[in-house]
Amino acid sequence: MKLIGSTTSPYVRKVRVVMAEKKLDYTLVLENVWAPDTGIATINPLGKVPCLIMEGGDTIFDSRVIVEYLDALSPVGKLIPSTGRERAEIKTWEALADGVLDAAILVRLENTFEGRSQYQRSPAWIERQMSKVHVGLHTMSKGLGDKAYYGGIHPGLADIAVGCALGWLAFRFPEIDWRGQYPNLGRLHDKLMQRPSFADTQPVA
């Protein structure tokens, strides 16, 4: 399998962590979707990463779709409950973590995208998106509570998704003091960083 992505994308990192936890072999093919000569649209018509090229050449995209497919490939280290309310809860935490990232990335693009002038950037839009980030962090902390992991005593997809979101915020928005505000999220992130799957996939510029 080939994973198309970048070392800075938190969504790509989520897939890479799942690949490592599931002990699946793959090749990472780096792609800059913002480069003028990018060919990402030939793989994903939405022009986004990650994309997974499976054996046989078929392609799937969107990190949530990819990790669900990967979790079903092998019984090793099951990350998503098979059915029922537990499954819905884990997928909801993943959706929240991804939503926090969606909002934070919109803020970053609003502040840095070269296609917009300083006068075109909207402080009100930035404030709206940042409120989603802060409410999301509060909700993630409240949901984790005093538990070791979202699903109990073993890390699962919810923890991976939240951990990737926290790692990217630390990388791109170091001014957000989520460790100080939510010590339980800091403890979760520290535990995850002790795992090779997380330590080996830290975002780098």
Results as ranks from 00 to 15, higher is better:
residue 138 H to E: 14
residue 137 L to D: 09
residue 145 G to E: 10
residue 114 E to W: 00
residue 129 Q to R: 15
residue 78 K to N: 11
residue 123 P to W: 04
residue 14 K to I: 03
residue 66 I to M: 04
residue 131 S to D: 13
residue 77 G to R: 07
residue 37 D to L: 08
residue 46 L to Y: 04
residue 137 L to Y: 11
residue 67 V to F: 14
residue 54 M to D: 08
residue 146 D to T: 15
residue 87 R to L: 09
residue 30 L to A: 11
residue 97 A to R: 10
residue 83 T to D: 13
residue 22 K to I: 06
residue 21 E to N: 00
residue 70 L to H: 13
residue 33 V to W: 10
residue 11 Y to W: 14
residue 24 L to E: 07
residue 122 S to K: 10
residue 10 P to T: 12
residue 46 L to D: 00
residue 139 T to K: 07
residue 146 D to V: 09
residue 39 G to L: 01
residue 95 A to P: 01
residue 134 H to R: 13
residue 30 L to R: 03
residue 117 S to W: 01
residue 28 L to E: 03
residue 48 K to A: 02
residue 69 Y to Q: 10
residue 150 Y to H: 12
residue 135 V to L: 14
residue 106 L to K: 15
residue 10 P to S: 06
residue 123 P to S: 08
residue 41 A to F: 12
residue 27 T to K: 13
residue 43 I to R: 14
residue 15 V to G: 01
residue 89 E to V: 07
residue 10 P to W: 10
residue 114 E to P: 01
residue 131 S to C: 06
residue 17 V to E: 00
residue 111 N to M: 12
residue 144 L to E: 07
residue 72 A to P: 00
residue 103 A to D: 07
residue 75 P to D: 11
residue 79 L to I: 04
residue 130 M to C: 02
residue 153 I to K: 15
residue 118 Q to M: 03
residue 50 P to C: 05
residue 37 D to R: 06
residue 18 V to Q: 06
residue 64 R to G: 14
residue 150 Y to A: 10
residue 76 V to F: 15
residue 151 G to T: 10
residue 132 K to W: 09
residue 44 N to K: 04
residue 109 L to F: 14
residue 105 I to W: 11
residue 60 I to T: 09
residue 130 M to W: 08
residue 45 P to G: 05
residue 151 G to H: 05
residue 37 D to Q: 14
residue 51 C to L: 03
residue 141 S to T: 05
residue 133 V to D: 07
residue 49 V to A: 15
